Simulated scan of single mutants.
Amino acid sequence: MSRAEPSRAGASRAGAAVRPGPSWTLGLFRSELLTTFRRWRTLALLGVLAAVPVLIGVAVRIETGDGSPAGGGGPAFLAQVTNNGLFLVFTALAATLPFFLPMAIGVVAGDAIAGEAGAGTLRYLLVAPAGRTRLLLTKYASVIVFCLVATLVVTVCALAVGALLFPLGDPTTISGTRIGLAEGLGRALLIALVVAASLTGVAALGLFVSTLTGSGIAAMATTVGLLITVQIVDQIPQLHAVQPYLFSHYWLSFADLMRDPVHWDDIVRNLGLQVLYAAVFGSAAWARFTTRDVTA
């Protein structure tokens, strides 16, 4: 028997002697959230996301200052922003979803495990009675919370800027019907939740990549690179056969929530696809992490 085997056996007996309960797990999750949201990198990413709706709103305000309508190009709903500031929420989400939001998620998810390994703190987390599965689930849950927070940052900033720069009233749906402002705000919240759920596949992919390397920078760069590659593939007409299976293909289906009645088909396809990606890459991350020889 090698020297490493007795030490591992001793560590296993020590870990078995302490069985962390739900309160311990909740404390681990709370600690992980605090660590994530205290990083300057995380705050910088949220700052960039908050700036996007501000820039869009100011640009539209300047362009339409002489009474001319907003240009037809650009993100969806852009032409309707001047008539109703609520549409700045949908415009900002449509502008950030293809790249800015998933890039931010990819950075946080890619750093989840690899960052700990690179900093030399991963093995100390595993010495504590966390268990690899519990630690991995905690990491993924914190990334999901970041998905929700990042999406809400864009939504709230867009709503505030839209209300400040443009009229805020009853919105007109894509179908041409008018709904009340309260219902419009409710649909905006629902759209934000759908957009956050649309990022769970990217989160699982980034977490899997994070288990493959001990370098946080390499994991983040790989995740963002894969994201860009998938976006490019999704735009090539000759690859239309594989595009419905890409996690980004149905991202903009949230616009169907602004129809009357709501068209759910593509939204359900999008959410189902995210569940599939989360299951596949989450399982791959678990298989890799639970068998990985952690030395840092």
Rank of each mutant, 00 (worst) to 15 (best):
R19V: 14
L26C: 07
F208V: 06
L46F: 11
S7K: 08
L190M: 10
L126P: 05
A241W: 13
A192G: 11
L148E: 01
L271C: 12
L239A: 13
A109S: 12
T133S: 12
L246K: 11
A44V: 15
W264F: 11
G74D: 08
Q235W: 09
M103I: 10
A109Q: 00
G72K: 09
I228Y: 10
G106Y: 01
A284H: 01
P171D: 01
P129A: 07
R292N: 05
L189K: 00
F146G: 01
M258W: 12
R41E: 15
A95E: 14
D260L: 00
H249I: 09
S215H: 10
L125F: 14
M220F: 08
E116I: 10
D66L: 13
F146W: 03
F289A: 04
G131F: 03
L88E: 09
I62D: 14
A182G: 10
V242P: 08
T25Q: 14
R41G: 15
L190P: 00
G65R: 09
T138H: 01
I217F: 15
L168K: 04
S12H: 13
F77E: 09
P98N: 04
G67S: 09
A279N: 03
V81H: 10
L164D: 12
R134I: 07
A296Q: 14
S12Y: 11
A192L: 08
G180K: 02
P53Y: 09
A285E: 02
P167D: 03
G15I: 03
R288S: 15
D266G: 06
V60Y: 05
I62L: 15
L276E: 01
M258Y: 13
W24Y: 14
R292M: 08
L199G: 04
A95H: 04
P261V: 04
A196H: 03
A128N: 11
D293V: 14
F100Y: 08
P244I: 06
P22G: 02
V143N: 02
K139E: 06
A285S: 08
I232W: 06
A141N: 06
A218P: 11
A278W: 02
G225Y: 05
R187L: 05
T138G: 15
A17Y: 04
W40R: 15
G72F: 13
G71E: 07
S198D: 10
V268C: 10
A44Y: 07
F87I: 06
V275E: 03
L181S: 04
T96H: 02
V89I: 14
V60C: 07
A112F: 01
R288L: 12
S215I: 13
V275H: 00
F289Q: 00
V156R: 03
A158L: 05
V275L: 14
W40D: 12
A284F: 08
D111P: 06
A204D: 09
I62N: 13
A287T: 11
A44G: 14
L43I: 15
L193I: 15
L189E: 01
A182C: 01
T138F: 02
H240L: 11
L185C: 09
A44K: 11
A16G: 05
L185R: 05
F77K: 12
R13E: 13
G201I: 07
R13V: 14
G15P: 00
L273M: 14
T151P: 03
M220W: 03
I228K: 02
L55H: 08
R41T: 15
A114K: 00
L159K: 00
